[in-house]
Design a binder for these strands. Structure first.
Lengths: 218, 218
DNA sequence: AATAATTTTTAGACAAGTCTAAAAATTATT
DNA sequence: AATAATTTTTAGACTTGTCTAAAAATTATT
């Protein structure tokens, strides 16, 4: 039986390993889980024993097929629950994360699959992230950060990188959500801020915001 | 912060203390949680320190107001989730318990209250047990075990005592559910079995079944 | 290539919750 | 009321996951 802590390590390692196919190092895991490197070393040995990952001393860690499967399953549950909370229980997109972090660990195959059906087999969660299906399959959408968007083009918002409450509240306040149409008016080379057009209003957003907002070309 | 284990102890103590206002003893708690008496003693001291209950050495344990509040809140969550699983996710009444045991520990005031609203503020769960409201209030229904029902009277089924999968499957197989109309035809003094009439069919149930099936007079 | 800085691992300790075995208190029996 | 049976508690140990501090390996710098 896999423990809650083990699941959280596997999830963190999955997310850290997503870009670049190289190994995930101890300090990165420690930082992401807000724990100490020595604790990570201990746990990583245990997870290697259980065949969730391959571990080379001083080299870092990489998930096995088995570990990958576990990670994707947790992510599937997390995102289904997030969507459930927003669609059925009136949560806002900045409120869902904390609760979904708990719900993702509930163990019941039937529960996940019935929830999936209840929500009509959705493909994306409230932050625009893809939801893996029963078999772990999901397609990533071709998205681009606002900071890398091209002047004069028009896009729609398809997701966010940062899911912190503060950032999501900022977006809400400025009427930016999934599906919002955004035209790129001007990119300021001095501070990398970007001037955009939303419906009728114009808005200047900082580099920080621009980096964390994902768009798709219309 | 209260731990999962503490919550389970408090819930068990609440259920054990419901009949008779006297103290709940160590062995009873140990048996109900399938643990050892020595473990119970340790935990009970901890719960007393945290003011969830009053504990007198060798005398047993009784929940405080604070402990009672925690217990009722867990029961509220358990029963709301059970109803959700049956009503929205196609679970049968014998499948819900195990999953609800997990879901009842999710911590989010908003989640519980929104779930309550989503289900239209229900008053009873799929086993006929009352669901406490936001303020912990609930009315117990005047129910009677089939074994104590009176010959010739007609009742409706309002709940069960035993919620084991086997018992609930037995009831399903014989078309007995919440709201089923039951007429008591004959009580056999020899083995305490009871002959009942369901719609058109007649059925003889054992003493064991009769003791675990709750009825209300029509 | 030698030294410095950083990263990672090891060793030993701690808290939570559990266990076994033995001691202490309570309850039942004669 | 003394002894027997039962229940409860204590004492000490184990597991999981964590920590600090020190040692070892790797990477960066000169």
């Amino acid at each position: 039986m896999i423990t809650l802590t083990e699941e959280n390590y596997i999830k963190a390692i999955y997310h850290l390993g997503i870009h670049g196919k190289n190994m995930v190092n101890t300090n990165a895991i420690a930082e992401s889980l807000e724990t100490k490197a020595s604790s990570v070393t201990d746990m990583v040995k245990k997870l290697a024993d259980k065949k969730y990952l391959n571990y080379k001393k001083y080299q870092g860690v990489i998930l096995t097929e088995k570990g990958n499967y576990v990670a994707i399953n947790i992510i599937r549950k997390h995102r289904l629950w997030e969507l459930f909370l927003v669609e059925k229980l009136n949560f806002t997109w900045d409120e869902v994360h904390e609760v979904a972090e708990q719900l993702e660990h509930i163990k019941s195959e039937k529960l996940v699959n019935e929830l999936d059906a209840f929500l009509n087999f959705p493909t994306h969660d409230p932050h625009g992230d893809p939801i893996p299906d029963k078999n772990g399959k999901f397609n990533k959408i071709e998205k681009i950060a606002l900071s890398k968007a091209i002047n004069g083009n028009t896009y729609t918002c398809v997701g966010v990188q940062d899911t912190s409450s503060d950032f999501l509240k900022y977006l809400d306040k400025n009427n930016i959500g999934l599906g919002t149409t955004i035209e790129v008016l001007h990119k300021e080379p001095f501070d990398n801020s970007v001037k955009i057009k939303l419906n009728t209003t114009e808005l200047v957003v900082s580099q920080n915001v621009a980096k964390n907002l994902y768009l798709k070309i219309v």
